[in-house]
Design a protein around this nucleic acid. Structure first.
Length: 138
DNA sequence: GCCAACGTTGGC
DNA sequence: GCCAACGTTGGC
């Protein structure tokens, strides 16, 4: 059974548009233990909601895991076992789901995204995933 | 092992 | 630009 994740990115660093153009990418440079532990749990076929932080502040579309966690060696910190996963572009939402809309939704406002704003990779419940897709695709 | 100081992320 | 919420670092 597929799991559902929300991965955050700063679009000036790596945008969802760039993922669309490249079709797939390695999701790397996660340097937070909690987020890394979630990356390690990702399985091929899991679905990922991509969220743009910064100026955009909205869930922008969907991707899926195509390669499970493998080493992401940090030259400045080679002894720590950071990991990356590969993700494939699926689709843009017809309309991005803004943080405001997420906070306004009684179910979605309980997501870790809202409660723990610094976390860059996190699990989301199936209900949350489905609600986000519904809001994004109308 | 504790905790104060500092750094980072991300929303406002 | 500021600040809240964390995470990390380093002195003790």
């Amino acid at each position: 059974m597929a799991q559902y994740w929300l991965y955050k990115t700063e679009p000036s660093t790596y945008s969802f548009e760039r993922l669309q153009k490249e079709k797939s990418t390695n999701w790397n440079l996660i340097r937070n233990y909690q987020a890394r532990n979630f990356l390690k749990q990702a399985k091929v076929g899991d679905l990922v909601v991509v969220y743009h932080s910064g100026d955009v502040k909205a869930a922008v579309g969907l991707g899926k895991i195509i390669r499970e966690a493998y080493p992401d060696v940090d030259p400045d910190d080679p002894k720590t076992e950071w990991v990356q996963v590969d993700i494939q572009y699926i689709s843009h939402f017809k309309a991005p789901v803004s943080l405001g809309a997420i906070k306004a939704d009684p179910t979605l406002k309980n997501m870790l995204l809202v409660k723990q704003s610094r976390l860059s990779a996190m699990p989301i419940e199936k209900d949350h995933y489905e609600k986000l897709v519904r809001l994004g695709n109308g």
